[in-house]
Computed example of a mutant assay.
Amino acid sequence: MQKASPWWSPHVHADRRPRLLTRNAIAASVRAWFAERGFLEVETAALQVSPGNEAHLSAFASEAISTGGERAPLYLHTSPEFACKKLLAAGEQKIFSFGKVWRNRERGPLHHPEFTMIEWYRVGEPYQVLMEDCAALLALAAGKAGARRFAFRGREADPFAEPERVTVAEAFERHAGIDLLASVAADGATDRETLLAAVTAAGIRTAPDDNWADLFSRVMVEKVEPNLGQGRATVLCEYPTAEAALARPTAHDPRVAERFELYCCGVELANGFGELTDAAEQRRRFVAEMDEKERVYGERYPIDDDFLSALSIMPDASGVALGFDRMVMLATGAPRIDDVLWTPVAETPR
């Protein structure tokens, strides 16, 4: 089979260039949108002592070498979240970061090892305001691209329509016939056997070593996510607290947390939280996440004690991260995320 020409071939670049120019135009409009609303753009260090403590996020590892030869591990961040929250603790009120992040073990039509993330925070405002921000950015991107509709793999959505809001429990009932919260106790503890019975009854295949989180993920991937963001965007909210390690519980039900994700054409675009500010609880959740990471992948990442110290004085805030490349991909009708990156990362041998 003939090898495809590289992205830097003049004829390939000529085909890619219109989408790349649209990317630049959308980026400029996004920055202007935040500036008009009083946000301060911040640049956070890409190298961190911890890349994040979510079980299924994999980082790129590096190390710092001192002039004396001492070595200390560092990681390329998977999100600017820890650094941004330290800035909130320092006194900033409305900030956004627009920059590169890195995630290992991820490559495909919707995934790239290096990608661009927009992440922003509002001190003293509820996380529902972030849902409205996301809807505004979708419309902004569509308008700049001249797109009346977004489409991906046979699914379409109107980027100018107000997104529907659906709780995770409602989505499980609607798309899988599963009463999710029947497997979640009042304190947020999860019951594997109850969820396993419901997942099996729904005809979803399971593995003997699946824990509650694995079963939750299987339902999300097979039954829920493909049905989200059709016709218009979907805000999926109120995740079980076990699936929201960085979010505070909702005031009306401690079983669920102030976490939401934005979907369009079945594609996840954003992940937002009413931020947890209880440092002791955050440490407990990080340890649990790293225990799970060690069980699945045989490794764990350090916990950033400096971040937890900052969290203890951080004011109440809401924050969200949005995948800029995916949004541009939908706005320009690109079939793959690589098509809207100026210089894609080289493919590694399989």
Rank of each mutant, 00 (worst) to 15 (best):
D338G: 07
F60P: 01
R285F: 02
D339N: 09
D325I: 08
Y297D: 02
A279E: 11
Y263E: 04
S97C: 15
Q282N: 14
F307E: 00
N211L: 10
A279Y: 04
P80H: 05
S29C: 06
R149I: 11
E275V: 11
A201F: 10
A207K: 13
A202K: 03
D15R: 12
E125N: 12
L21P: 02
A198W: 03
T241R: 12
E164S: 12
V184D: 00
A90K: 08
G188Q: 09
V235A: 05
Y263A: 01
V340L: 08
M314T: 15
K223A: 13
R174S: 08
S309W: 02
G69Q: 11
G91M: 13
A25W: 07
N53D: 10
N227T: 14
D339I: 03
E347R: 11
K144M: 08
E156K: 06
A90S: 13
I337N: 02
T250D: 00
L57C: 13
M327K: 09
E258K: 14
K94M: 12
W7P: 00
Q2G: 09
L47R: 06
G319W: 04
L276K: 03
D210M: 03
Q230N: 14
K94D: 12
V235Q: 01
I313F: 12
G99T: 10
T277N: 14
D338L: 06
L87D: 07
C134P: 00
A90I: 07
F39A: 04
V287D: 04
A46T: 14
Q48G: 04
L57Q: 13
A25C: 08
T234F: 01
K293V: 00
E43W: 10
A186N: 05
E243K: 10
R153A: 15
A55Y: 04
G143L: 08
M117Q: 13
P159V: 08
L269T: 01
S5W: 12
E268L: 06
L276F: 05
E289S: 07
A139S: 15
T116P: 06
G333W: 00
E347Y: 06
A257P: 00
R37I: 12
E132K: 13
A136R: 06
E164K: 08
V345G: 02
M314P: 01
E292W: 02
E70H: 13
R285T: 06
T190D: 05
E119D: 10
L330A: 09
R122T: 09
S62R: 09
R300A: 07
A14Q: 15
V219H: 00
A55Q: 06
E292R: 13
C84S: 05
K100Q: 15
I26S: 01
V30F: 12
P73D: 06
T167N: 03
A25L: 13
P254W: 07
W102A: 11
G52Q: 01
A202T: 07
V267L: 09
E70S: 14
Q48P: 02
G203Q: 11
G319Y: 07
E292Y: 03
A72F: 05
A61R: 12
Y75K: 04
E162A: 14
V320S: 02
P10W: 09
R218Q: 14
R218H: 12
